[in-house]
Simulated assay, not measured.
Amino acid sequence: MGFLLSKSMDANLKKQQEFMLHNSRLQLERQMMMQNQMRERQMAMQIARSREFIKYFGTFFAVAFTGLTVGALKRKKPALLAPILPLSFIFAYQMDGAYGTLIHRVRGEAECIMASENHRLDLPHGTPTFDSIEKARRAKSSLASFLER
Protein backbone atom coordinates (compact mmCIF):
# COMPACT_ATOMS: atom_id res chain seq x y z
CA MET A 1 0.00 0.00 0.00
CA GLY A 2 2.90 2.35 0.76
CA PHE A 3 4.27 1.66 -2.69
CA LEU A 4 0.98 2.73 -4.35
CA LEU A 5 0.86 5.89 -2.24
CA SER A 6 4.49 6.69 -3.09
CA LYS A 7 3.82 6.10 -6.78
CA SER A 8 0.79 8.40 -6.69
CA MET A 9 2.78 11.10 -4.86
CA ASP A 10 5.59 10.83 -7.43
CA ALA A 11 3.08 11.24 -10.26
CA ASN A 12 1.53 14.29 -8.55
CA LEU A 13 4.98 15.77 -7.94
CA LYS A 14 5.90 15.29 -11.58
CA LYS A 15 2.63 16.94 -12.71
CA GLN A 16 3.26 19.83 -10.32
CA GLN A 17 6.80 20.28 -11.64
CA GLU A 18 5.53 20.27 -15.23
CA PHE A 19 2.86 22.81 -14.28
CA MET A 20 5.46 25.06 -12.62
CA LEU A 21 7.74 24.78 -15.65
CA HIS A 22 4.85 25.66 -17.95
CA ASN A 23 3.94 28.67 -15.80
CA SER A 24 7.57 29.81 -15.69
CA ARG A 25 7.78 29.58 -19.47
CA LEU A 26 4.54 31.55 -19.87
CA GLN A 27 5.76 34.22 -17.46
CA LEU A 28 9.07 34.52 -19.31
CA GLU A 29 7.28 34.79 -22.68
CA ARG A 30 5.01 37.50 -21.29
CA GLN A 31 7.97 39.42 -19.89
CA MET A 32 9.78 39.20 -23.21
CA MET A 33 6.70 40.38 -25.10
CA MET A 34 6.19 43.24 -22.66
CA GLN A 35 9.83 44.33 -22.95
CA ASN A 36 9.60 44.21 -26.74
CA GLN A 37 6.40 46.26 -26.75
CA MET A 38 8.02 48.81 -24.45
CA ARG A 39 11.06 48.98 -26.75
CA GLU A 40 8.79 49.48 -29.77
CA ARG A 41 6.89 52.25 -27.99
CA GLN A 42 10.12 53.98 -27.00
CA MET A 43 11.39 53.79 -30.59
CA ALA A 44 8.08 55.19 -31.86
CA MET A 45 8.36 58.05 -29.37
CA GLN A 46 11.90 58.82 -30.55
CA ILE A 47 10.84 58.86 -34.20
CA ALA A 48 7.81 61.02 -33.37
CA ARG A 49 10.05 63.41 -31.43
CA SER A 50 12.41 63.63 -34.43
CA ARG A 51 9.49 64.38 -36.73
CA GLU A 52 8.23 67.09 -34.39
CA PHE A 53 11.73 68.59 -34.19
CA ILE A 54 11.88 68.64 -38.00
CA LYS A 55 8.82 70.91 -38.09
CA TYR A 56 10.51 73.50 -35.91
CA PHE A 57 13.99 73.16 -37.33
CA GLY A 58 12.65 73.09 -40.88
CA THR A 59 10.88 76.39 -40.28
CA PHE A 60 14.03 77.86 -38.74
CA PHE A 61 16.13 76.57 -41.64
CA ALA A 62 13.75 78.02 -44.26
CA VAL A 63 13.71 81.44 -42.56
CA ALA A 64 17.49 81.42 -42.05
CA PHE A 65 18.14 80.26 -45.63
CA THR A 66 15.84 82.94 -47.06
CA GLY A 67 17.21 85.68 -44.81
CA LEU A 68 20.84 84.82 -45.41
CA THR A 69 20.35 84.52 -49.16
CA VAL A 70 18.52 87.85 -49.39
CA GLY A 71 21.12 89.48 -47.14
CA ALA A 72 23.99 88.09 -49.22
CA LEU A 73 22.43 89.33 -52.44
CA LYS A 74 21.55 92.79 -51.11
CA ARG A 75 24.89 93.42 -49.43
CA LYS A 76 26.87 91.53 -52.06
CA LYS A 77 28.65 89.52 -49.34
CA PRO A 78 28.75 85.82 -50.17
CA ALA A 79 30.20 85.14 -46.71
CA LEU A 80 26.69 85.49 -45.31
CA LEU A 81 25.83 82.19 -47.00
CA ALA A 82 28.41 80.29 -44.88
CA PRO A 83 25.99 79.25 -42.08
CA ILE A 84 23.75 77.56 -44.64
CA LEU A 85 26.22 74.70 -45.12
CA PRO A 86 26.34 73.39 -41.53
CA LEU A 87 22.62 74.06 -41.09
CA SER A 88 21.88 72.01 -44.20
CA PHE A 89 23.88 69.06 -42.82
CA ILE A 90 21.96 69.21 -39.54
CA PHE A 91 18.67 69.46 -41.42
CA ALA A 92 19.56 66.51 -43.68
CA TYR A 93 20.56 64.37 -40.68
CA GLN A 94 17.33 65.18 -38.86
CA MET A 95 15.25 64.43 -41.98
CA ASP A 96 17.06 61.11 -42.41
CA GLY A 97 16.34 60.21 -38.79
CA ALA A 98 12.69 61.24 -38.96
CA TYR A 99 11.70 59.96 -42.40
CA GLY A 100 14.71 58.21 -43.94
CA THR A 101 16.67 55.03 -43.48
CA LEU A 102 18.93 56.19 -40.65
CA ILE A 103 17.34 53.76 -38.18
CA HIS A 104 18.02 50.82 -40.54
CA ARG A 105 21.65 51.81 -41.01
CA VAL A 106 22.12 52.27 -37.26
CA ARG A 107 20.54 48.87 -36.59
CA GLY A 108 22.84 47.28 -39.18
CA GLU A 109 25.90 48.87 -37.60
CA ALA A 110 24.74 47.73 -34.16
CA GLU A 111 24.40 44.17 -35.44
CA CYS A 112 27.94 44.32 -36.85
CA ILE A 113 29.27 45.59 -33.52
CA MET A 114 27.47 42.82 -31.66
CA ALA A 115 28.84 40.20 -34.05
CA SER A 116 32.44 41.31 -34.41
CA GLU A 117 33.19 43.71 -31.55
CA ASN A 118 31.21 42.26 -28.66
CA HIS A 119 34.10 42.95 -26.26
CA ARG A 120 33.10 46.63 -26.43
CA LEU A 121 29.72 45.77 -24.92
CA ASP A 122 31.01 44.40 -21.62
CA LEU A 123 29.67 46.13 -18.54
CA PRO A 124 32.01 47.44 -15.86
CA HIS A 125 32.40 44.76 -13.18
CA GLY A 126 30.75 42.25 -15.55
CA THR A 127 27.12 41.23 -15.83
CA PRO A 128 25.17 41.53 -12.57
CA THR A 129 24.46 38.20 -10.90
CA PHE A 130 21.94 37.20 -8.29
CA ASP A 131 24.72 37.08 -5.69
CA SER A 132 26.02 40.56 -6.51
CA ILE A 133 22.52 42.03 -6.41
CA GLU A 134 21.74 40.25 -3.15
CA LYS A 135 25.02 41.46 -1.64
CA ALA A 136 24.21 45.07 -2.58
CA ARG A 137 20.67 44.69 -1.22
CA ARG A 138 21.94 43.35 2.09
CA ALA A 139 24.52 46.11 2.36
CA LYS A 140 21.86 48.72 1.71
CA SER A 141 19.41 47.22 4.21
CA SER A 142 22.11 46.92 6.89
CA LEU A 143 23.13 50.54 6.23
CA ALA A 144 19.49 51.65 6.50
CA SER A 145 19.03 49.78 9.78
CA PHE A 146 22.29 51.26 11.11
CA LEU A 147 21.15 54.80 10.23
CA GLU A 148 17.80 54.26 11.95
CA ARG A 149 19.54 53.70 15.28
Results as ranks from 00 to 15, higher is better:
F19H: 08
M20C: 01
T66V: 15
E40V: 01
M114P: 00
P86R: 10
Q35D: 08
F19M: 07
A72K: 08
F91T: 04
R30P: 00
N23A: 03
S50F: 10
L80T: 04
S8Q: 14
F3Q: 13
S6N: 09
P86D: 12
I113K: 09
D10W: 05
R107C: 00
N118D: 14
L80K: 03
L13R: 10
S50G: 02
A62N: 02
G58F: 05
E109Y: 09
Y93T: 08
A48E: 11
M9G: 00
L87F: 14
Q27Y: 02
F3R: 14
H119M: 11
P86N: 11
C112D: 13
L123F: 04
L121V: 01
D96G: 01
Q37N: 11
A64V: 14
L21E: 13
A79R: 10
N118Y: 14
I103M: 09
L85Y: 09
G67H: 03
L13D: 11
A110K: 12
H104Y: 11
N36Q: 13
A48N: 11
S50M: 14
D122T: 07
F3A: 02
N12Y: 05
G100R: 09
N12Q: 11
M20F: 08
F60P: 00
A98V: 04
L68T: 08
E52P: 00
K77V: 04
H22R: 15
L121E: 03
F61N: 03
L4R: 13
Q46H: 08
T66F: 11
R75S: 09
S8M: 12
Q27G: 00
M9Q: 12
V106T: 11
K74F: 06
N118M: 11
M38A: 06
I113P: 02
F91Y: 11
E109P: 00
D122W: 02
L21W: 05
L5N: 07
E29R: 10
M38Y: 07
T101H: 08
F91K: 04
T101K: 12
M114Q: 15
N23H: 05
A82W: 10
F61G: 01
V63W: 06
M9D: 14
L68C: 07
F60V: 06
H119A: 07
G100E: 13
K76H: 10
I113T: 13
E29F: 01
M34T: 05
I84C: 05
S116D: 10
T101W: 04
L28F: 02
G71V: 06
E29G: 00
F53T: 03
N36H: 08
L26I: 11
L28Y: 06
Q16D: 08
A92K: 13
I54T: 07
R25F: 02
G67S: 12
S8K: 15
A98F: 03
L21M: 06
E52D: 05
M45F: 10
S88R: 03
R107K: 14
H22I: 01
S6W: 10
A48K: 13
L121N: 03
A48Q: 10
L5R: 13
F19L: 14
L80R: 06
C112W: 14
L68F: 12
E109G: 01
I84E: 08
Q94I: 11
F89Y: 14
E40L: 12
I103D: 12
Q31R: 09
M38G: 00
